Amino acid sequence: RELRDAFREFDTNGDGRISVGELRAALKALLGERLSQREVDEILQDVDLNGDGLVDFEEFVRMMS
């Protein structure tokens, strides 16, 4: 339940997936600093298991585990 709530916080447009822009904004909020595009792309590449360029809830749960 906590992970579902956190996912909703990251998924600002409510489409059920976290985009690169949403991921960048969430990481900035969490870390208090802006990451480079390359750093965000590397994180997305590690987390995006199905290669669609987005983070779905299952991928998010794995990222947070």
Rank of each mutant, 00 (worst) to 15 (best):
R8D: 13
G51Y: 08
T12I: 04
G53H: 12
V55D: 00
E58A: 09
R38P: 10
E22W: 00
L3Q: 12
R17P: 01
E59N: 04
R34G: 13
F60Q: 00
V20R: 02
D52P: 07
Q37S: 08
A29Q: 10
A6C: 14
L23K: 01
R17M: 08
I43C: 11
T12Q: 07
L27T: 14
M64N: 15
D41E: 09
A26D: 03
R4T: 07
R8A: 10
K28I: 12
V61L: 11
L35Q: 13
M64G: 12
G32K: 05
D5E: 10
N13S: 01
A26Q: 02
E58Q: 08
R34Q: 14
D52Y: 06
A26S: 05
G21V: 09
N50C: 13
R8N: 11
L35A: 14
N50W: 01
E22H: 02
F10Q: 15
L23Y: 05
D52T: 06
L27P: 02
S19D: 09
R38S: 12
R4M: 07
M64L: 11
L44V: 12
G32F: 04
M64R: 15
F57S: 15
E22S: 02
L54F: 05
R8L: 08
Q37R: 09
D5F: 09
E58L: 11
D48Y: 13
A6W: 08
L54D: 05
L3G: 01
E9G: 11
A6K: 15
V55M: 03
L23D: 01
D11E: 00
D46F: 04
F10P: 00
R17C: 15
G51K: 12
E42P: 04
E2R: 08
R38F: 08
E22M: 02
L27N: 14
L27Q: 09
L35N: 14
L44F: 13
N50F: 03
A29T: 11
R4C: 05
F60G: 04
E2D: 01
F60H: 00
D46K: 07
M63N: 13
E2C: 02
L23E: 01
R34V: 08
G32V: 03
D48T: 13
I18T: 01
Q45H: 11
T12M: 03
M64P: 01
D15V: 04
K28R: 08
G53I: 07
E33C: 12
V20Y: 13
V40T: 06
L31P: 13
V55C: 11
R1Q: 07
E59L: 14
E2V: 03
D48G: 02
R1A: 08
G32P: 10
L3K: 01
Q45P: 07
L27M: 11
V40D: 13
A25P: 11
M64V: 15
A25M: 12
L35P: 11
E59Y: 07
D41I: 06
Q37V: 11
D11P: 00
E9H: 03
A25S: 14
D52M: 06
A25F: 09
V20N: 14
R38T: 10
R8E: 11
R8K: 09
F10S: 07
G16D: 12
E22V: 02
D41Q: 03
E58H: 11
N50Y: 03
E33M: 10
V61N: 15
E42C: 09
D5T: 13
G51W: 04
G16F: 00
Q37E: 13
V55T: 10
M63R: 03
E42M: 07
S36F: 09
N13K: 01
F60V: 04
F57L: 10
I18L: 15
G16C: 02
